[in-house]
C-alpha cells in the first residue's frame, strides 16, 4: 500500500520537524550546544505513555509530556549554567545517558528493556484517532503550531536576545540583561516541544523501549539542524524533508531493513561532511559554524 507508506513517512517527518525545530531554538538561536535533546524526547514519550496507560486522558498526557520535559529542560539549563561550548555538549550528552539508564533500569516505572506496550491511540473525547491518516492530521497540526510558536519567539525581540547570547553572551550581560534566566527559558521551551514530539511518537508506534532513545539518535536531528542552516527555521523544515526522505529509496532497491538503518547513518554523516566542506552555512543559514 503506497499511500499507507507515504502517510507513515509524513507522520515521521512531522515528528522530526517538531524535534528539529525545537533543537534549532536552543542550538541555532541561543548557541547552546545541547546534545541532550533526545532525553527530552524520551521524557515526553514515557510521560505520555505512562499517564495514558494509567487512565489519564490523552490530551492531558500529551500536554504533560511537554510540561514535564520543559521542567527537565529548565533544570538542565539551571545546573549547566556556567558551562559553555564543548563542556555543555558533554554535560547534556551525559544527561541523555542518565535518562537512558533510568528508562532501562527503573523497571517498576518504565518496564526496563521490555518497554511499554499497548500505548493507546489518541482519544480526544469526541474524536478517536484510530486511522493513520487522521493521526497524520493531528501531527501536522501540532507541527504547524510548533513552527508558529517557535517562529514567533525567534522573530520577537526576545529572539534577538537569544541570538545575541549566541554571538557574545558577555556583551549581553554588559548591556544589563540576565542571560541566565533567558537561557533557562530557551532550553525549557526547546524541551517542551521535544517532549510533545516524544508523545506523538509513543502514541503512533504504541510501543516504546529505551533503544529508541539512545544517544546516537541525536545524530540525524543534529545533522538536520546543521544542514538546514544555523538559525534558519525554513532551512530546518527543508532539511527535515530531505534527510528523512533521502534514505528511503534504499528500501525499494531491495536493501533489507537491517541494512537501511546503518546506511542511513552513513548518508547523514556524508551529507554533514559535504555541507561542512562546501556550504558551511547549510541550506539557508546566515551563521557559519566556527
Amino acid at each position: 500500500m503506497l499511500s499507507a507508506y507515504i502517510i507513515h513517512l509524513l507522520i515521521l517527518i512531522g515528528i522530526y520537524l517538531i524535534l528539529c525545530l525545537s533543537l534549532q531554538l536552543a542550538l541555532g538561536y541561543t548557541g547552546l550546544l545541547n546534545l541532550g535533546h533526545i532525553a527530552f524526547y524520551a521524557i515526553g514519550a514515557y510521560t505520555s505513555a505512562l499517564l495514558t496507560l494509567s487512565g489519564v486522558p490523552f490530551i492531558v498526557s500529551f500536554l504533560m509530556a511537554g510540561i514535564v520535559s520543559a521542567l527537565f529542560g529548565y533544570l538542565l539549563a539551571f545546573s549547566t549554567n556556567k558551562l559553555k561550548g564543548d563542556y555543555l555538549a558533554l554535560a547534556t550528552l551525559g544527561f541523555t545517558f542518565v535518562i537512558y539508564a533510568i528508562a532501562l533500569n527503573w523497571t517498576d516505572l518504565t518496564n526496563g528493556a521490555l518497554g511499554l506496550a499497548g500505548i493507546p491511540k489518541p482519544d480526544l473525547g469526541i474524536l478517536q484517532i484510530k486511522s493513520n491518516a487522521f493521526y497524520l492530521f493531528f501531527v501536522s497540526i501540532t507541527a504547524v503550531f510548533s513552527y508558529l510558536i517557535i517562529n514567533k519567539i525567534v522573530k520577537s525581540p526576545f529572539g534577538k536576545v537569544l541570538e545575541a547570547i549566541r554571538d557574545d553572551e558577555l556583551a549581553v550581560r554588559i548591556l544589563g540583561k540576565n542571560t541566565f534566566k533567558i537561557k533557562n527559558y530557551s532550553l525549557a521551551v526547546s524541551a517542551f516541544f521535544a517532549g510533545i514530539a516524544g508523545s506523538l511518537y509513543a502514541h503512533y508506534i504504541t510501543f516504546i523501549d529505551p533503544s529508541s532513545f539512545g544517544f546516537m539518535q541525536i545524530i540525524p536531528i543534529l545533522s538536520i539542524v546543521i544542514i538546514g542552516g544555523i538559525a534558519s527555521l525554513r532551512g530546518t523544515v527543508l532539511a527535515t524533508f530531505v534527510l528523512v526522505l533521502l534514505p528511503e529509496p534504499l528500501r525499494f532497491i531491495g536493501f533489507p531493513s537491517s541494512v537501511v538503518g546503518p546506511v542511513r547513518q552513513i548518508i547523514y554523516a556524508l551529507m554533514l561532511l559535504l555541507i561542512l566542506m562546501y556550504r558551511p552555512k547549510g541550506f539557508y543559514g546566515k551563521v557559519s559554524l566556527e
Partner: peptide, 17 residues
C-alpha cells in the same frame, strides 16, 4: 544591535510570546 541596548522588555519571555 542598537535596539538591544535600549531596555530590557526584550528579555520578558511571556510578554514577547
Amino acid at each position: 544591535n542598537l535596539l538591544l541596548a535600549l531596555d530590557h522588555t526584550d528579555t520578558k519571555f511571556w510578554f514577547n510570546l
